[in-house]
Design a protein around this nucleic acid. Structure first.
Lengths: 250, 250
DNA sequence: CGCAATCTTGAACACCCTCAAGCATGGTGG
DNA sequence: CCACCATGCTTGAGGGTGTTCAAGATTGCG
């Protein structure tokens, strides 16, 4: 578990990417050792947010993207009608705010799901840096491209998949992202509430709850509140990629 | 209507962005006049595709993005199960393939919906150019960011909106995109089949058909096949952004 | 002109939502 | 420390929007 310390939050504290445990997941992976100092000049170690705090709010002036250091963030967009759509969950090593780089204001809100620390990336300075470091520019293109892809995957799920398939997919996505950080792939704490899962997957909370208990009865997982243990990964994978035309046998 | 000519398709014909009628919608808008030549050195006027032709196919080696010059393109992803999700429709002036810049292979397929001509943007050369031209780099960030946003909007529609709302939204989106090109905002030809609309919006073809006839009976539009005339834009706007908590009157 | 593809229309069913209530959980203050 | 309340989670019953299945109408193209 990444512990982020530093109680007194000095406003703009230079980040030390070099020593960061996430350096192989985050921006440093695209920067050579001798250029790392230039990255650290731009990146600021941001403040710590408590559960429920906004990292930024929709329609606020856009300035920075944020890299999650510890904790978790959800992003969501709100329509004029007032209904909300959760657009993503972001775990340590992942970048929040890429969808807001096209305008002068944030396109979504970002809320801390638990105690969360971030690094701040002021994008005006960052764009100067990507201009100087082709590798970093390329990495940003890649990150944004991935974001488009995963959003397309979400659209696919929302329009084609059953409730069971969607939830299996989400669990497996979280699982593999925990594993990347050398954490258990089968036993972890959900950073988000059932409500957030439901909203993200386009379901009612009740449906999410029902699927969880169904899976539990089938022995696929064990869940108590946010504590989840995946017991049958193979079965979950099978469900997540269920074919409409089922395989030969059955 | 942009007519793109040039019958004999020489393999790599240098583009002439300067004279292109779409220069105020496309990449040139981010490039100064004196740099335009450098852009033209990279951009290649691609071939012409007939209806049904693939501009590129999912999992083929990624090389280029494409700017639509005339016609229309749909992109879609196919899962292992074989079911397809249309992820976007692209009209003249719009860029296809940004979601594939994170890997070595295309993340989706792009198919011409009608006779379509494109400009090809070899991304290795293009990245060199964006590296030299900060304005162009910034523009690419903007384009990709917009792509993320619109995909989030799609997710919102798929998970929260009724069939009627989704279709009204799509019609209005097309309308405004035609208008940007100085074409009629109220009378146009749908470049895509009902099937594509249904798939994109996460509906069955039958539902799309039913909504069209319902709208026609209500006098909101007149549709005969792909020929569509929007008769009551205000009503369509009202439907597209329908509040769950409806406005005071009704 | 005739066939194939696309589009439309109808009827029955299914999945998930809504509404409603009961049950855990956790934080707070007496 | 426990009572208390708020919040989040679970479970049940009924109904609605859209799907599926099936057939007919229209279009377009060879």
């Amino acid at each position: 578990m990444e512990q982020t310390i530093k109680i007194g939050k000095s406003p703009t504290l230079k980040a030390s990417c070099q020593q960061c445990s996430l350096s192989n997941l985050c921006l440093p992976l695209a920067v050579s050792d001798q250029d790392l100092a230039r990255l650290e000049d731009v990146v600021q170690q941001g403040r710590i947010y408590n559960r429920g705090d906004y990292v930024f709010e929709q329609n606020a002036p856009f300035r920075s993207c944020f890299a999650v250091r510890s904790g978790a963030i959800k992003t969501s967009i709100v329509t004029e009608n007032g209904d909300e759509q959760v657009t993503g969950f972001f775990l340590p090593g992942e970048l929040v705010g890429l969808d807001s780089m096209s305008g002068t204001h944030y396109a979504c809100s970002a809320k801390a799901l638990e105690r969360t620390s971030v690094c701040e990336l002021p994008m005006d300075h960052m764009e100067e840096l990507t201009h100087k470091l082709p590798g970093l520019q390329h990495h940003f293109f890649q990150l944004m491209s991935q974001e488009i892809q995963s959003s397309h995957q979400l659209a696919m799920m929302l329009s084609k998949r059953t409730a069971e398939e969607r939830i299996a997919s989400l669990l497996l996505s979280l699982s593999s992202r925990f594993q990347r950080r050398k954490l258990s792939a089968t036993h972890f704490n959900l950073p988000m509430a059932r409500n957030d899962i439901a909203n993200f997957l386009g379901l009612a909370v009740e449906t999410v709850s029902r699927v969880f208990t169904r899976y539990q009865n089938q022995g696929l997982l064990k869940a108590r509140g946010r504590d989840v243990e995946l017991l049958d990964m193979d079965a979950l994978h099978a469900i997540a990629q269920e074919a409409s035309d089922a395989p030969p046998c059955r």
